[in-house]
Amino acid sequence: MAKITYREALNQAMCNEMERDDRVFLMGEEVAEYNGAYKVSQGMLDKFGPKRVIDTPITELGFAGLGVGAAMAGLRPIIEFMTWNFAILAADQIVNAAAKMKYMTAGQYNCPMVFRGAGGAAARVSSQHSQAFENWYANIPGLKVVMPSNPADAKGLLAASIRDNDTVIFIENEINYGDIAEVPEGEYIIPLGKADIKRVGKDITLVAHSRMTGYALAAAEELAKMGIDAEVVDPRTIRPLDEATILASVAKTNRAVVIEEGWRFAGIGAEISARIMEKGFDDLDAPVARVTGKDVPMPYAANLENHALPSVADIVEAARVTCNRA
């Protein structure tokens, strides 16, 4: 297995799928001649030509809608948003068109397509460019929401998302693009709706997705030094959620902390902790704790930004308290 970056893994998934299926095309701002704002589509214009790798004007609503229409007409669009912050402009097409088209037409039309791009907090770009939106899309029937936390998952999940016959919201993490790890070569598919246990442990379950998975793994190392053996579960697909894997872990550890970068109120952690309460209440030895971003728009100053985001120390502290350790 070769060691490649998260962005190269995404690139491989797109290239493989485009080689396999000529209905697949990539469209977005700066995806072609500039090779991608975050270089995810590096080299794809050369490989596939301007018919299938298409630069757009800065017109998110328009090209998102174009993707919806193209999908309804039988193509398999990958629509890249430079970041998910800009996708708010396109929310009508995602929420009112793509998500509902199959239902509203009683199955006559569907939208097999991927909306993808960078999400979560970036570094030092203030409030409009640093936010988590997975809970917005995860609330909507008709959408699937996928968030890889490492390069191998990025490749396998994106390939599966492109092959999926529904609309997939694929949220990458800007900070993770340069992460390097081993990634299987050639065709590699990770089924949607399957969580992954990133670290086996017996004392407490840490549920974390996207960039927070790395934080949870780092926290687990700290916790090990205190004699707490943490299990880290990465849902990978946010909607629909593989809660069985989470519940099985909690049944073993009897304690859980749910971690997310986004805001606390009505966040992903609220849903996951509610499910643990509904279905795993008897397994719990302590209330489920949540570690989230603070309930503020993201500030610019380095110290304020740092303070607004969840930290490894926050996770360690929440786990320690949940385990009732001094």
Binding site: G62, G65, V68, G69, A70, L75, Q93
Partner: peptide, 9 residues
């Protein structure tokens, strides 16, 4: 924009 997508296809 949806109509545009059909034209694109």
């Amino acid at each position: 924009p949806i109509g545009l997508g059909f034209a694109f296809a």
